[in-house]
Amino acid sequence: MIAPAPLKQNQPSQIRVRVLRQDGPGQDPYWQLFDIDYEREMNVISVLQKIAAKATTVDGKKVSPVAWDCGCLEEVCGSCTMVINGRVRQSCSALVDRLLQDNPDEIVLQPMTKFPVVRDLLIDRQRLFNSLKRVKAWVPVDSYYNLGPGERLPRVDQERAYPLSQCMSCGCCLEACPQFNKIELTQEAGETQEQFEARKQAAYDTAFIGAHAISQAMLFNQHPTGKALAGERLDALMGPGGVATCGNAQNCVAVCPKEIPLTTSIARAGRATTVAAIKNWFEGSGEKKEQRVGE
């Protein structure tokens, strides 16, 4: 069968969808109900597409289409994260037949709760990408000129790196994390756009960085060239909102759609930062001593 395990015996002709809507930042959220025609092999994306085309609630009221974000529809771009029937996940791989198995009455769609709502199911995940800057998640190559191949790499190293490198920045791990709290700032009167951006940046830079970025730091710290910035990445992880903030709830690894070994990365980061802290302490005290001699 091309369809996932057929459930033909009691297929509804219509599906009820409950959506938590919000017209804009700072506005009150409200629920709206939609009925749409059932078709085989639907996912939450096709449900939302139907809602957009119809834009009419169960009461026959014309409403604006529900805003949401999506891209590849094959769970590789990370766009379409939302809370579906109480669980954070990608809406493209949320198959309607499965959802109806769990709850035949309705499908409940809510925006992620750890990011500011832009509108309806669309949220602002700037902070997530900002975290990648905090840990300098890149290989610091000399240039983009042709300088021959990179280092030869044993297969085991590639097999350790590849799963971490599949992180699509969807934010599921952050939504599920008890230590990752929402930061929602609003532009104040008299504040320029630049000043506002700077204030946001400062808030993001000291709040918990999250499992995804810790894992990326570990990915680049094991790369032959990426290693060059290992110390700076560990410094970032030792600062405010770093790896010590993790409360070890392990929710992140449970919700990751790509099954990335996030807790393994966090444990490695914990060890590496401890070692670095001890080293810094010795070197730091050495520096002070020299200074005193100089005085």
């Binding site: 890149w138 290989v139 190559v141 590639q158 790196a161 490198s165 680049f220 790369h223 060239t225």
Partner: peptide, 8 residues
């Protein structure tokens, strides 16, 4: 060089 984890 940019770190793409090509299969080995």
């Amino acid at each position: 060089r940019l770190g793409v984890p090509f299969n080995r």
